[in-house]
Amino acid sequence: MIKIGDIQLPDFPLLLAPMEDVSDPPFRAVCKDNGADLMYTEFISSEGLIRDAIKSRQKLDIFEYERPVGIQIFGGDEEAMALSAKIVAAVNPDLVDINFGCPVKKVVCKGAGAGVLKDIDLMVRLTKAVVNSTDKPVTVKTRLGWDEASINIEEVAERLQDVGIKALSIHGRTRSQMYKGEADWRLIAKVKNNPRIQIPIFGNGDIDSPQKALEYKNRYDVDGIMIGRAAIGYPWIFNEVKHFIKTGETLPSPTIQQRTQVIRKHLQRSIEWKGATLGILEMRRHYTNYLKGFPHIKEYRNKLVTFKTFEEIDEVLNEIAVRYDGFVPERIVAAFSASQTEECAVM
């Protein structure tokens, strides 16, 4: 069993990565249904919280069925981070996570996200400010370093542990790599195997199949895996990984009936959370990923992103279920754009 403070997780837990414009409550609901052990909100600006920005405040919404769930914050000012941690605690998440990994320019230019990787002393001060401002377990998500010449994850892990974080998630790329190239899990393994490190270490980057999850579990000895991009449009990945690790067998791909059922639930949750108009509008970004690999799907997708009522969309989903009954598409991992911050977002 893995523990983050008083939070108990199963052996080798699977975490859903915080993804901007993706991991909102409706998306988290279907991931939870399909085996995610720990989830995080979209990342939230500490300055936005303090200004009472509507979008930032809405990201604080969490629900009992999601637990354990963490709220992720980012920022470059100690006082703002400390105050935002207190604001976050008011909605009673299970933990508070700090984003030191987002590589997107608009975040980095504010001296936040992966921008803090250039100043470890500041990273330590920001982390300490959050730890001292909340009684919730504090965790961190970060990258290997700013660039290849300044990889500092081993020092970062030790110093953040020393100021009180309870777990560390590491994306195996530098900021300069953005989302390109392969994630280097060897450095994640070095952190995990450092005898000074006593907190759980979770690996993140490029896990897109049950087979790779088991391979990386055995090869790099991490305490768990964080999955991002591979869950977009395919929340079944969590249960598939768990089943393969336990039995060595691959679960059958979800049927079209199971897929449309999950799309329907995702849509219903979106409407419940955001209201009918906005809930239907913001769900449109997900249909392409849910229906990747189905031939001649464009005519149905066009209807899904045009219709404005649940009843109309539900009828299209019924048509899709009939049309593609028995068809199993090739598994295609969702594309990831730099506008969707990850790690800020992903991986």
Rank of each mutant, 00 (worst) to 15 (best):
I2G: 01
D6E: 12
I7M: 01
L9V: 01
L9R: 01
P10R: 03
D11G: 04
L14T: 04
L15V: 10
A17N: 06
V22Y: 03
D24H: 02
F27C: 06
R28N: 09
R28D: 10
L38E: 02
M39N: 07
T41M: 06
E47V: 12
L49D: 06
R51P: 12
D52E: 15
S56W: 05
Q58W: 05
L60M: 11
L60F: 08
F63Q: 14
E66V: 03
E66T: 05
V69S: 01
I71C: 08
G76R: 05
E78G: 09
S84T: 05
S84N: 03
A85P: 06
A85T: 04
V88A: 05
V88T: 04
A90P: 01
P93W: 00
V96Q: 04
D97C: 10
D97A: 07
N99I: 04
N99K: 07
F100L: 14
V107L: 08
G111S: 08
L117H: 10
K118L: 09
D119K: 00
D121E: 15
D121Q: 11
M123D: 02
R125I: 00
L126F: 03
K128Y: 09
A129T: 01
A129V: 00
V130L: 02
T134Q: 05
K136V: 01
I151S: 11
I153K: 02
E154P: 05
E154I: 07
E154K: 14
E158H: 10
V163A: 06
G164K: 08
I165E: 08
G172N: 11
T174I: 09
T174W: 06
R175L: 14
S176M: 14
Y179S: 13
Y179W: 12
G181T: 13
A183W: 07
R186M: 00
L187D: 05
I188N: 01
V191N: 13
K192N: 08
N193C: 10
N194G: 09
N194K: 11
I197H: 09
Q198F: 00
N204F: 03
D208G: 10
P210N: 09
K212E: 13
E215A: 13
Y220H: 11
M226H: 07
P235F: 08
W236A: 12
K242D: 06
H243K: 03
K246A: 15
G248A: 12
E249Y: 06
E249S: 14
P252W: 02
T255M: 06
T260G: 06
Q261V: 01
V262T: 15
L267C: 08
S270N: 10
L278S: 04
I280P: 02
T288I: 13
N289F: 02
L291C: 02
G293A: 08
R301N: 12
N302E: 13
N302G: 14
K308N: 13
T309Q: 12
F310W: 13
E312I: 06
D314L: 05
D314I: 01
V316I: 15
E319I: 01
I320Y: 03
I320D: 03
A321D: 01
V322M: 08
V322G: 01
Y324R: 05
D325A: 11
G326Q: 10
E330K: 13
I332D: 04
S337R: 13
A338H: 12
Q340M: 09
E343T: 13
M347P: 09
